[in-house]
Amino acid sequence: MNTKTILIVDDEPRSREGIKKTLENWSNGQYQILLAANAESAIDIMKKQKVNILITDIRMPKITGITMLKTIKDQNYLPVVIVISAYSEFEYAQEALRLGVINYLLKPISKKKLVEAVEDAIKIDKNRERANIISRVVDDKLIDATVTNESAREPIQKALQYIEKHLKEELNQREVADHVYLNPSYFSVLFKEEIHLTFSEYITRRRIQHAKNLLISTKLSIADIAEESGYKTAKYFIKIFKELEGITPSAYRKVNIERAF
Rank of each mutant, 00 (worst) to 15 (best):
I6P: 00
I6A: 02
I6F: 01
L7C: 03
V9W: 02
D10M: 07
E12Y: 04
E12V: 14
S15A: 08
R16I: 00
R16D: 04
I19M: 15
I19G: 01
E24Y: 07
E24K: 15
S27L: 15
Q30N: 11
Q30K: 14
Q30L: 13
Q32K: 13
I33A: 07
L34V: 08
L34E: 07
A36Y: 03
A37N: 06
A37Y: 03
N38W: 08
A39Y: 06
E40M: 03
E40H: 03
E40A: 09
A42R: 05
D44A: 08
I45Q: 07
M46W: 03
K48T: 00
Q49C: 10
Q49T: 14
Q49M: 14
Q49K: 15
V51M: 04
V51A: 04
N52D: 15
L54F: 02
I55Q: 04
D57T: 00
P61R: 06
P61G: 06
K62Q: 14
I63L: 14
I63P: 12
T64E: 13
T64P: 05
T64I: 14
G65L: 08
I66G: 09
I66C: 12
L69E: 09
L69N: 11
L69K: 13
K70S: 04
T71H: 04
I72E: 05
K73I: 05
K73E: 05
Q75P: 00
Y77I: 04
Y77D: 02
Y77H: 13
L78K: 10
P79C: 09
V80G: 01
V81G: 08
V83D: 00
S88T: 14
S88Y: 08
E89C: 05
F90S: 10
Y92A: 10
Y92M: 09
Q94E: 14
E95V: 13
A96T: 14
A96M: 09
A96H: 05
